[in-house]
């Protein structure tokens, strides 16, 4: 995606792209015609369905019948019912914690590969991405094995005599969900941060050193601000899908680990209330989008900086 925008900019310079295009350039129709198959596919299979979800969320389910009178009743229920509110807040908090933990754990690795990877940068990146290509379900389940009452962590700690009885705070609660998701989303956090770190002009770092900044000040005043576009991208890439996860909470979260996505799934499945499920999905999307936009605006001074 970043490459696309860069390429776009390079071309704009050559052709001096005007702000308003009354007449299309010769290539214009070709480009539009060429991109229309994927564009139409996305319109038909994504935009139209999302619109229908939005419509459905304003209808109501009466047992087997669908009442098509437009009403906000589902939204009222989604907001006023305490269970949904609790699940929504919990999803946001868990996703927020997962995002912070994942990005903070990922940053030093991205830093290491970008500055000290040398000729082995590609090998490091490949090493980081390989575990990500194993079945997500099985990976999540294996964390259950690792963290479980008779699991690898407890087994080793007991065997080594560090603990007297198995630790119970690491499975079937939010901690387990955070650990597992921090693992699952690691490559998605590392790659954007790596790209923004690798783009930093090394002469800026030398300049900071020559002007008397120590390593810590140099990092805080030069490296970190210049890598913020990567950090922001990584945060959003981790945060947004995590809110919608329902595998990890189901397998590892116990009763207190249920998230909003589980409830949406239940409404479409067992509860057979698609309109309420749609309203919950739309509410979740609106909340997540608002938080993401606020996050980008909050960091916009970093995003203007060119590495």
């Amino acid at each position: 995606m970043q490459q696309e925008s860069l390429a776009g900019k390079g071309r704009a310079k050559i052709w001096q792209k005007p702000h308003f295009l009354p007449v299309m350039r010769p290539g214009g129709w070709h480009g539009l015609a060429l991109i229309s198959p994927p564009f139409v596919y996305s319109l038909l299979m994504l935009a139209a369905p999302l619109l229908l979800v939005f419509l459905l969320s304003m209808w109501t389910q009466n047992y087997l019948e669908l009442d098509r009178t437009v009403t906000l009743a589902n939204y009222r229920e989604a907001i006023s019912e305490e269970l949904y509110r609790v699940l929504m807040v919990r999803s946001l908090v868990i996703s927020g914690v997962v995002t912070v933990v994942t990005v903070m754990l990922a940053y030093p690795i991205a830093y290491y590969v970008a500055f000290f990877g040398g000729k082995r940068k590609s090998m490091w990146l490949l090493l980081i991405t390989i575990p990500f290509w194993t079945s997500y379900l099985i990976r999540v389940f294996l964390w259950k094995v690792i963290l479980g009452y008779n699991g690898v962590v407890n087994g080793s700690l007991l065997g080594l005599g560090f603990i007297e009885e198995p630790l119970s705070f690491i499975l079937y609660n939010a901690n387990a969900v955070v650990i597992t998701l921090a693992h699952a989303w690691a490559p998605f956090a590392i790659l954007p941060i790596f790209v923004s770190l690798a783009r930093i002009d090394k002469s800026l770092l030398e300049a900071a050193r020559d002007l008397g900044d120590g390593p810590i000040r140099r990092f805080l005043r030069v490296t970190l601000p210049l890598s913020m576009p990567g950090v922001v991208a990584a945060s959003l890439i981790v945060f947004i899908p995590t809110v919608g996860d329902y595998v990890t909470p189901r397998l590892l979260g116990g009763t207190n680990g249920l998230m909003i996505a589980n409830m949406i799934q239940i409404q479409f499945g067992k509860a057979n209330n698609a309109p309420l499920g749609s309203a919950l999905a739309v509410s979740a999307m609106i909340v997540v989008a608002s938080i993401s936009i606020a996050f980008v605006l909050f960091n916009r001074r970093f995003l203007k900086v060119k590495g």
């Binding site: 991109i35 564009f39 369905p49 979800v53 947004i240 899908p241 809110v243 996505a261 749609s278 979740a284």
Partner: peptide, 19 residues
Amino acid sequence: FIMVPLVLPEIIVGVALIV
């Protein structure tokens, strides 16, 4: 717009299509 599914929770894609 075509890249949107990259940042859309998968459950939303699933919900949209099933509806």
